[in-house]
Simulated assay, not measured.
Amino acid sequence: MQISGSGPIYDAETLEARPYRLPAGNVYETRFSEDGSHMAFNLGDSRRTSDIWILDLETGESRQLTHSHQGVPAEEMVEPELIRFTSFDGLSVPAFIYRPKEIKQGMKVPVVINIHGGPVEQYQPVYQPVMQYLVYSGYAVIAPNVRGSSGYGKSYTALDDVEKRLDSVKDIIALRGYIASISDMDTTKIALYGGSYGGFMVLACMAFYPRLWAAGVDIVGIVNFVTFLENTASYRRAHREAEYGSLENDRELLEKISPIHSIEKIEAPLLVIHGANDPRVPFSEAEQVVARLEEVGRHVELLVYPDEGHGITKLRNRLDAYSRTVEFLDRALA
């Protein structure tokens, strides 16, 4: 549920709607008390960390339970703009655009397309510290909810299943075309950034459409769906095969959509970041990328964190990885 300021809550038995006035911001991750008298929820927005609130459903009064620390003042953050662009097949795809606070007249800024993982996830206008850091560093950031994302209905979520996998990649290509219509963005300096499934999207875009990008950042991404499914934790395999296709029935398709078989076509510099203990997307995926690109003489850099798994979670590693990511982008897009 995403509400800004007010909205109805429905009685599950009577379907009666009752309007409530809520604090300004975006409401999500709701939980109801066992007796149905209260609702707990997270409240935040794109410039502030989220906090837990509780709503009394009888009186309509809300009160804040937690007060999260935020080191950077909200005034230093930017609000994203929600836009929609048209993909190759006419599909309307939503995206959030984060712009640097001050763009001088006639200036064009470099762009980072930030692709979420999942793929059944979605970007929302909530606090995104990495995107805010990239914006503070001088980059416009575009966060699309390509086909396969959640939050837009079951049909939208299923638009990238199995044999439709690369249609989501085409959404990013369409977004790149849309960027050309934005006067303050530099189409010669567009980088890709993504983690997990988003990392696959980065690698697929760079391998299958190599001349469109100035740089890429792949974080714990999939490069070979066959080896990924063979080596991922067994408890996840069946779940992932339902989304991507099975080793038994769809191996040929899995080979076709895997960027590893076109990885040598990548032209732009690539930064690969991975946790050595990743049980979901094993480190062997990153090793394949780096080995193949080094073999053909491409510019590839590797950051490995021995004490990380699927993603970068420890504060010291985040501070290191994200600052080195910006340094990499600054060099690549100079």
Rank of each mutant, 00 (worst) to 15 (best):
residue 333 L to T: 00
residue 205 C to Q: 01
residue 212 L to G: 02
residue 53 W to D: 04
residue 261 H to T: 11
residue 292 R to Y: 08
residue 139 Y to N: 07
residue 89 D to F: 12
residue 218 D to M: 10
residue 113 I to K: 01
residue 199 G to V: 08
residue 217 V to F: 11
residue 13 E to I: 09
residue 194 G to V: 05
residue 38 H to I: 01
residue 203 L to P: 05
residue 131 M to L: 08
residue 237 R to N: 05
residue 310 H to K: 10
residue 311 G to F: 08
residue 180 A to F: 03
residue 285 E to A: 02
residue 333 L to Y: 01
residue 63 R to A: 01
residue 315 L to T: 13
residue 114 N to F: 07
residue 16 E to R: 12
residue 139 Y to C: 11
residue 300 V to Y: 10
residue 189 K to N: 13
residue 175 L to E: 00
residue 40 A to M: 12
residue 29 E to A: 13
residue 175 L to K: 00
residue 334 A to N: 10
residue 190 I to F: 01
residue 147 R to I: 01
residue 212 L to P: 00
residue 20 Y to D: 04
residue 118 G to L: 02
residue 211 R to M: 01
residue 72 V to D: 08
residue 83 I to R: 10
residue 234 S to A: 14
residue 205 C to A: 15
residue 255 E to T: 12
residue 128 Q to E: 13
residue 54 I to A: 04
residue 157 T to V: 08
residue 160 D to P: 00
residue 74 A to E: 15
residue 99 R to K: 13
residue 321 A to S: 11
residue 176 R to I: 00
residue 234 S to N: 04
residue 17 A to R: 09
residue 187 T to E: 13
residue 3 I to C: 05
residue 40 A to V: 09
residue 285 E to D: 09
residue 170 K to M: 13
residue 195 G to Q: 06
residue 71 G to S: 14
residue 255 E to S: 03
residue 76 E to I: 08
residue 31 R to M: 03
residue 48 R to V: 02
residue 224 N to S: 12
residue 217 V to Q: 05
residue 235 Y to Q: 07
residue 264 E to L: 05
residue 15 L to F: 14
residue 34 E to I: 07
residue 12 A to Y: 04
residue 222 I to V: 15
residue 130 V to T: 13
residue 264 E to T: 14
residue 52 I to F: 04
residue 315 L to F: 13
residue 2 Q to I: 09
residue 110 P to W: 01
residue 22 L to D: 06
residue 137 S to D: 06
residue 98 Y to P: 01
residue 289 V to S: 04
residue 54 I to G: 04
residue 161 D to H: 12
residue 328 F to E: 02
residue 210 P to Q: 07
residue 57 L to A: 03
residue 282 P to S: 06
residue 276 A to W: 11
residue 261 H to D: 12
residue 174 A to P: 00
residue 314 K to Y: 06
residue 84 R to N: 03
residue 265 K to C: 03
residue 275 G to R: 09
residue 170 K to D: 07
residue 124 Q to N: 14
residue 93 V to N: 00
residue 265 K to H: 15
residue 73 P to V: 13
residue 223 V to E: 05
residue 333 L to F: 02
residue 224 N to D: 15
residue 290 V to P: 05
residue 197 Y to R: 03
residue 324 R to N: 11
residue 14 T to M: 06
residue 26 N to W: 11
residue 157 T to A: 15
residue 58 E to C: 03
residue 300 V to R: 09
residue 57 L to G: 03
residue 233 A to H: 11
residue 146 V to A: 05
residue 58 E to Y: 02
residue 1 M to S: 10
residue 196 S to P: 05
residue 138 G to S: 08
residue 327 E to M: 10
residue 314 K to H: 14
residue 243 E to N: 03
residue 47 R to T: 15
residue 54 I to F: 03
residue 172 I to Y: 00
residue 217 V to W: 12
residue 251 R to Q: 12
residue 177 G to H: 02
residue 155 S to V: 14
residue 87 S to Y: 06
residue 180 A to V: 02
residue 90 G to C: 11
residue 115 I to D: 04
residue 138 G to V: 10
residue 225 F to W: 15
residue 88 F to T: 08
residue 222 I to D: 10
residue 30 T to C: 08
residue 277 N to D: 11
residue 242 A to Q: 13
residue 86 T to A: 02
residue 276 A to N: 08
residue 314 K to Q: 13
residue 104 K to F: 05
residue 189 K to A: 02
residue 16 E to G: 05
residue 239 H to Y: 15
residue 283 F to N: 04
residue 202 V to I: 07
residue 312 I to C: 07
residue 190 I to L: 01
residue 171 D to Y: 00
